[in-house]
Lab assay of single mutants.
Amino acid sequence: MQRVNMIMAESPGLITICLLGYLLSAECTVFLDHENANKILNRPKRYNSGKLEEFVQGNLERECMEEKCSFEEAREVFENTERTTEFWKQYVDGDQCESNPCLNGGSCKDDINSYECWCPFGFEGKNCELDVTCNIKNGRCEQFCKNSADNKVVCSCTEGYRLAENQKSCEPAVPFPCGRVSVSQTSKLTRAETVFPDVDYVNSTEAETILDNITQSTQSFNDFTRVVGGEDAKPGQFPWQVVLNGKVDAFCGGSIVNEKWIVTAAHCVETGVKITVVAGEHNIEETEHTEQKRNVIRIIPHHNYNAAINKYNHDIALLELDEPLVLNSYVTPICIADKEYTNIFLKFGSGYVSGWGRVFHKGRSALVLQYLRVPLVDRATCLRSTKFTIYNNMFCAGFHEGGRDSCQGDSGGPHVTEVEGTSFLTGIISWGEECAMKGKYGIYTKVSRYVNWIKEKTKLT
């Protein structure tokens, strides 16, 4: 034993070699072989497995989906700052455009905790909710729209109204504003409101030439003092309507412009014939205590009207009353817009006519005020429907199939267009061939041609 100890002390290297040989010859039971080890760690190889990531292109799944990435790591994937920024906006807080917040056709661009709407022409605001041009839906104005110097929408209202708090709607500024039905039992019968379409306001006024200088022999019209197929109006439903009495009662109609003036057809009036105007009328054979009678003290036909040349060209006249009318729910003026808007309103496509005229061709006159909704007829169809001249200051309205029309005794009465609950004068009943005849239409004086003249002559002093 002493000898062994001496050998170990003198030859430590020998001992180490012996131990190493023993270990190498022993069977290893701690580690699995290569094949079995792979069965336990069965993990798919990654895209760049075996390579240094710093030297390969980034992978979106590896960089940002398996674990949260930084902007720089995302930049490695896209290799483009702009594309990385677009991805980053949604990656950080989701897609803010998912709810489609942009209105009126706006395009949404996502941002971090926010979004941006790219608005089409005519709109602005956070969600493109603000109209900035009158060309689109009248700028959301209830009545009139004008573009300011910086191309912003400025709404306005006709006389007797003021802008509401929203700067879009119009509200009454006087007790009985024009064009409004205020009798409670008839307010439910107000005709369907007309909503502004998209309009090209630059070209809204037709490029028409008034044929002022045409000389033409007097034409022989049949029954051209021209509501057939209409309905009984309720008291106060058309408070701007008046009836004219002269040699015979209810020979023509008219509309209240203001307390002192009536507008009617020029062919209705004769110099030297006494005319009485009755406002607030409903049943011409009954006294309903809503009527107001006034005498006409002055007749002003349009300066281009000449019955000797043509009885229905420039067929418009103004009547001055001896005493002002007292405005109330049964006696209310009709609204008159400017030339541009009167023309736009007419193009809405349908209007209402009213009167006490004959209820059928050569038949009896109506006792109760009649009204009828009539569609506008395109000019080409209008011209083809008659052998008589249709001037540019006239328009056609009615039904091709016949059966409904204005008729004798309705002449001078109103053709009105309702705009968001307020009625505007767009025409004056003038003439036609018979009444409600198939293929024939009622012919009306186009008020847009005469609004400046009306307003100039009827100013209240």
Rank of each mutant, 00 (worst) to 15 (best):
Y330A: 10
G403R: 05
C268K: 01
A436K: 07
D110H: 15
F78P: 15
S169D: 05
V202Y: 08
L130Q: 09
F87P: 15
L130V: 12
L60A: 15
A366D: 14
T84R: 14
P301G: 04
N245K: 06
A366P: 14
F251W: 06
K234T: 06
Y391V: 07
V368Q: 13
N222W: 07
H289F: 12
S329A: 04
A26Q: 00
R404Q: 03
R294N: 00
Y341R: 12
I256C: 01
C335D: 00
G432V: 11
P239D: 00
K109T: 13
Q219K: 11
D232C: 08
E286N: 10
A279E: 00
V273P: 10
G160F: 02
E320W: 01
L321C: 02
L163W: 02
P239V: 01
L211Y: 10
V377K: 09
I300N: 02
N147D: 10
A380W: 13
E79V: 09
W356M: 04
L372N: 10
I136T: 03
E61F: 07
T190V: 11
H34Q: 05
E208S: 08
N151C: 04
K109P: 02
H282P: 10
Q185Y: 09
I40W: 05
G432Q: 03
T158C: 04
E98C: 07
K446L: 04
S148Y: 05
P177K: 00
C396A: 02
E66I: 04
G412V: 07
L24P: 01
E142S: 13
K387I: 07
L24M: 06
V183G: 07
F176D: 02
N100S: 10
Y352Q: 02
E231N: 11
A337L: 01
A233K: 08
Y161N: 01
W88E: 15
T276Y: 05
Q143A: 01
G254Y: 00
I15V: 05
R358V: 10
A307F: 08
L52V: 06
W240F: 03
I309N: 13
D131S: 12
E340G: 14
G253E: 05
G409V: 03
C134N: 02
T461M: 09
I15C: 05
E61M: 08
S217A: 08
P12G: 13
W118L: 12
F144Q: 02
S329K: 11
N283E: 09
K51N: 11
F176E: 02
V77D: 15
G409T: 07
N203Q: 05
T271I: 10
E72W: 15
R226Y: 14
R358W: 10
T264G: 01
R449I: 13
I284K: 07
Y352M: 03
I443G: 03
T186F: 08
S204P: 06
Y391F: 09
C128P: 02
V277E: 01
I284T: 09
T332P: 01
G403W: 12
G355K: 06
R46D: 07
C170Y: 00
E286W: 09
C407T: 05
G402P: 06
N135V: 11
P324V: 04
K137E: 10
G355D: 03
D405H: 12
Y371I: 10
S411C: 14
L383W: 14
F221S: 07
D33I: 06
V199D: 09
I284V: 10
N104T: 04
L24H: 02
I40S: 15
G427Q: 00
G398A: 09
F123S: 13
G272L: 03
V243I: 11
H415S: 01
E433K: 06
V451E: 04
T381F: 15
C119R: 03
K459V: 09
N147W: 07
I390T: 13
R294Y: 01
E86H: 15
K126P: 12
Y371V: 14
E340H: 05
Q219E: 04
L325G: 00
G442Y: 13
S365F: 03
G421I: 02
Q237P: 07
N147Q: 10
E434F: 13
A279S: 02
E124I: 10
P12Q: 08
V195I: 07
T190G: 10
I112H: 15
T386Y: 09
